[in-house]
């Protein structure tokens, strides 16, 4: 066998290995989804969705968990959306290149790398204790808002960066002020991108359990929260709780709850991908 034959053989071998590795990722994903569907799908019925939690697996439902998750979604959006977009607009449109903006940038990328459980410790001290909000929905939403703030800021900046400078020039040349230009031209033109980023950030928030456990969200909440100051649980915590129990019946409950959680996560991601594709098709400068 010549040297070149050997090289060609190695090349082919790596190709096969490459396909194999790619398949591992996909097969694991498939096994995983199928396993959960087999275990949990049969458990999902109207009663499961509308029942309160219970110490008896067969009677337990996820009503309070998904109600809590919805509450958290709405509150987190209300808090994080204006804050993150404002910060992104400031950094992209207003900030001069100086030490402060440089520091802000480094700081935000650092915050993006802080483990979520650390945000839990922050929320525990600041929101739960110092501000006296307790283990409430509001504490949870504030904590998660800080957690996803870096993601929203970064995606907002990218969306704004994609708006061509000529649009701003055109607006300024007609006598528009900075804010009029941002509000009338830059934000409408980048809205699709910003929205995509926010939905992706929310899908991250929906799956978080660790920081909420730290701030004291409960596993057992026998009522649907009716105000932001009520105690709560969310789907991931409910799943964690059921998974930690030895009885097989609770594992099935956990699988069923996972299906619901994945449904929400995939739905959010699907919307984000759809918006992104639509946006890319629509805008041709």
């Amino acid at each position: 066998m010549t040297n070149s034959d050997k090289n060609r053989l190695k090349d082919k071998a790596f190709q096969v290995f490459g396909i194999f590795c790619t398949l591992i990722g996909l097969v694991v994903l498939a096994v995983f989804l199928i396993d959960i569907l087999i275990k949990g799908l049969g458990r999902i019925d109207w009663e499961f969705l509308t029942s309160l939690p219970s110490r008896r697996a067969a009677r337990a439902g996820i009503l309070t968990a998904w109600a809590g998750t919805l509450w958290i979604l709405v509150l987190t959006t209300i808090i994080a959306f204006p804050l993150g977009v404002s910060a992104g607009v400031y950094l992209e449109e207003y900030a001069r290149k100086n030490r402060l903006s440089n520091f802000l940038e480094i700081n935000i990328s650092n915050l993006a790398g802080v483990p979520s459980i650390i945000y839990g410790l922050l929320g525990m001290e600041i929101f739960v204790r110092q501000m006296g909000l307790g283990g409430s929905l509001l504490s949870g939403a504030l904590t998660l808002s800080l957690l996803i703030l870096p993601i929203i800021i970064v995606t907002t900046r990218e969306a704004i960066k994609a708006v061509p400078g000529s649009i701003r020039d055109g607006s300024y040349a007609l006598g528009a002020s900075k804010w009029q230009t941002v509000w009338n031209q830059v934000l409408p033109a980048s809205f699709g991108g910003i929205l995509t980023g926010i939905i992706l950030a929310l899908s991250r928030a929906v799956g978080e359990a660790a920081p909420l456990i730290v701030i004291g969200a409960l596993a057992y909440v026998p009522f649907i929260p009716s105000s932001p100051l009520d105690e709560f649980t969310v789907l991931p915590i409910q799943i964690f709780n059921w998974t930690s129990r030895p009885q097989e019946a609770f594992l099935i409950n956990a699988a069923a709850a996972i299906i619901m959680l994945l449904f929400i996560t995939f739905l959010l991601n699907g919307i984000a991908v759809y918006l992104r594709n639509k946006q890319q098709k629509k805008i041709k400068w």
């Binding site: 096994v31 995983f32 396993d35 959960i36 275990k39 899908s203 929906v206 799956g207 978080e208 359990a209 660790a210 991931p236 799943i239 964690f240 998974t243 594992l251 956990a254 699988a255 996972i258 959680l261 994945l262 996560t265 995939f266 991601n269």
Partner: peptide, 14 residues
């Protein structure tokens, strides 16, 4: 995009 609590379930039960 899959929440980590779901991965935990997978690790433990599968």
């Amino acid at each position: 995009t899959i929440p980590t609590v779901v991965y935990g379930f997978f690790a433990l039960t599968v």
